[in-house]
């Protein structure tokens, strides 16, 4: 770099020096996440990803998971194997 470089060249050089962030900001920005939000707010209740924000959401998700499990276990997996539609939880 020289002090005579154009402003755009300087911005380009600065971005090249930035190991990751411009890429994160431009291509991978996902908006606020519960994890990021939790810096500024909610108490952690001990369980994995369990913050004070999510009482109702957790309940709905829990009921959803139970329903999926019941349906899968009762109807789809009668041969003792999981079906290939969902690979929950991984």
């Amino acid at each position: 770099m020289s002090d005579d470089s154009s402003t755009q060249e300087l911005v380009q050089q600065y971005n090249t020096q930035s190991s990751t962030n411009p890429t994160v900001a431009r291509d991978n920005y996902k908006g606020p996440t519960p994890r990021a939000d939790s810096w500024e707010s909610q108490a952690h209740h001990g369980g994995p990803m369990c913050y004070g924000c999510c009482g109702t959401k957790c309940l709905v998700a829990f009921i959803g998971i139970v329903v999926v499990l019941v349906v899968c276990c009762s109807y789809v997996s009668q041969d003792g194997q999981c079906c290939s539609i969902c690979y929950w939880p991984f």
Binding site: V11, Y14, N21, V24, A25
Partner: peptide, 26 residues
């Protein structure tokens, strides 16, 4: 502490951590 733990794990600073996330023009 918490953002630094995430930075150590992710390999780059979170965008909110301005001194370490290349703030200029952001």
């Amino acid at each position: 502490f918490f953002p630094y733990v995430i930075t150590a794990m992710d390999g780059y600073a979170n965008i909110s951590d301005c001194p370490h996330a290349s703030c200029l023009t952001k």
